[in-house]
Write a protein that binds this DNA or RNA. Structure first.
Lengths: 344, 344
DNA sequence: GTAATGTTTGGGAGCGCTCCCACGAATTTT
DNA sequence: AAAATTCGTGGGAGCGCTCCCAAACATTAC
């Protein structure tokens, strides 16, 4: 079937294009899908008709026949408040979407939210028959989550290395440990010796890895680890940065590495409130290079994460998995960069 | 066809369910789609089998046969930097996604980004054959954009009332004008008389409407409009709030209404840098009730927008349009709320 | 020259649904 | 009582593609 002007829109199918260009349905299909065995002359002829009528194959028909939808699911199982305050997910989403679109995939979105029944939501997600594969954007996935992901039988990639069973799961992540080490080495090189750390939310590999980097930098420099200089209760929040810094002030630190920029900024406030100065009395280093790092006073030395590329690699890796070009697990760590500003 | 345990997953089709429950394909289809004419006993029998095998109809097959995909496109044609700094879109996306999922629709995402060829991107979006309808989240759509949207022949809803031709286009928006009026009336009620305004980015209906609300509040109170108290170059950015406030300081204002919270916060910095105090010397009101409004010193009086509901209404409106329950244009303005904190 | 191989093309079957039509059974009307 | 209507159900056709197979033709090898 094919009504020519459906809502003022040409809406033809393969068969119509075939008729209009004097070839068979199969040949048009070959042209559309860039199959090799089509003579140049036929290809041109068909392409011309396709272009003239602005023909696009019907995605549902294609999906049904080929059993591939060219749709990838993006799951962001995060609590609302994180989305509010943290542009990380916005940027990530942009990276994923841009790359997906450029390789002819459409991203469909699953977000949890406070108002929704979690278990029903996950049933929906895990029973989805539409997406060819999925990207899970969260570092908090646990073993049972990964198990369900595996049971689903379709490729997936996690953004942020998970703690559990990660030997066999596919992920992309930033070099958190190396970034933290770079930051602390930088502080040491500036002559700082009593270097404190405000840690991230426990249970996340990013927090773990950043702490690890801090420790290894100190060890490499033969500076003894002083447990009192590591705040126990940091959780990436503004508030925990402030209270963490208050604690560290009692131990006469001359530098502090905060596990993210938000905490670094609130630590700076705590320092000022104690009538001390950054970086003269205490140097501050952050992590993430969010917008806030540029607006603090003084601007914040921090570690830049390649967030957009995280999304980009996740999509490309997933598609490689999907098309069988690589075998799981697909694992990729992306380099980070030290951005020196005036806080150190 | 139907292999029973495909990747450890039951993956049956209608035909299989029909055979397993001793009825025909058609009857199963009726059960799945909640058609009325199925006897209670048959329905139960079929539902039991469906549940036992966790059957879900194949979305592509369904879409092909019914010519409806239950997918809605979400277009956010915004520059990167906005996404970075403004949680508006994150919250909106969450609202849209949550509602869509709850009514069995899947949202697919289109985001522009700096690295992508705009015209190719829009060709892709406007030629999409997958989505049943789309939600455009941007107040900057112009007449030619709306024309293409109309030509596409599928329902759409714009979030944010557009300037052009809006009589016939469907949109949902917040009561920006009314919100601004409420804020300025509040300032007047607090005894303020020289009330300045830092405007939003020109070309957006939100900026226009908020300015309009400011003007009408003053007029209602018989306070003459002083053009020098309206900054010409506000654009919703941190920087423009600061410079705008610097300008207003030269005209001895006793209150300022900033068209968003970001500018209100930077205006407060400008006031402090001039050694004046908020609210004693100058009261400040914002708009949006973003997270920042709670962390300024003092906390910011502002107007709360129902962002999540904006997404919710957009989805519901779109589906009503899709299913022919309402005729376009679907237009809806959502109420806003004055949140009084300590800055006024 | 013929045989073997490679290239290009068309047609059939099938993907898993929906939707229409038809038929028999149950129910209501006359 | 038969006729008319409603209800419940099954089967066929079709949605618009892909993919396999075979036929037709061109090319190369022997």
């Amino acid at each position: 079937m094919s009504t020519d002007f459906d809502n003022g829109f040409t809406d033809l199918n393969l068969e119509d294009i075939a008729r209009l260009s004097g070839v068979s349905r199969s040949t048009v299909s070959r042209v559309v899908n860039h199959h090799p065995n089509v003579s140049e002359i036929t290809r041109r002829k068909v392409l011309e008709v396709i272009e003239r009528y602005n023909f696009k194959p019907h995605p549902a028909a294609r999906a049904l026949a080929s059993q591939r939808s060219n749709i990838i699911g993006i799951l962001i199982p995060h609590i609302v408040s994180d989305l509010f305050t943290d542009p990380f997910f916005s940027i990530l989403l942009q990276g994923i979407t841009t790359t997906a679109n450029s390789v002819n995939y459409s991203p469909i979105l699953w977000l949890t939210s406070a108002t929704v029944d979690e278990s029903a939501f996950y049933d929906q997600v895990f029973n989805d028959r539409l997406a060819d594969g999925m990207i899970v954007a969260s570092a908090t996935v646990n073993a049972s989550f990964i198990k369900r992901l595996d049971q689903r039988g379709k490729p997936y990639i996690i953004i942020g290395r998970p703690f559990t069973a990660y030997e066999n799961t596919s992920y992309v992540d930033s070099e958190n440990e190396q970034g933290a080490r770079m930051m602390v080495e930088h502080l040491i090189q500036q002559g700082r010796r009593r270097i404190g750390m405000i840690t991230g939310r426990s249970g996340l590999t990013s927090s773990h890895d950043r702490l690890q980097g801090y420790i290894s930098a100190l060890q490499n420099a033969d500076i003894p680890i002083d447990m009192r200089l590591i705040t126990p209760a940091g959780d990436y929040s503004d508030a925990s940065g402030y209270t963490g810094m208050k604690l560290l002030l009692q131990h006469r630190v001359d530098a502090v590495f905060a596990a993210n920029d938000v905490m670094a900024a609130s630590a700076m406030r705590a320092i000022k409130d104690a009538s001390l100065s950054v970086p003269d009395d205490i140097a501050i280093g952050g992590f993430d290079d969010m917008g806030i790092a540029r607006t603090t006073e003084p601007p914040l030395t921090t570690i830049q994460q390649p967030i957009t590329q995280l999304g980009d690699y996740a999509v490309r890796g997933l598609i490689d998995l999907l098309e069988g070009r690589v075998e799981p697990p697909f694992q990729q760590m992306l380099p980070v960069k030290l951005i020196v500003r005036q806080s150190t």
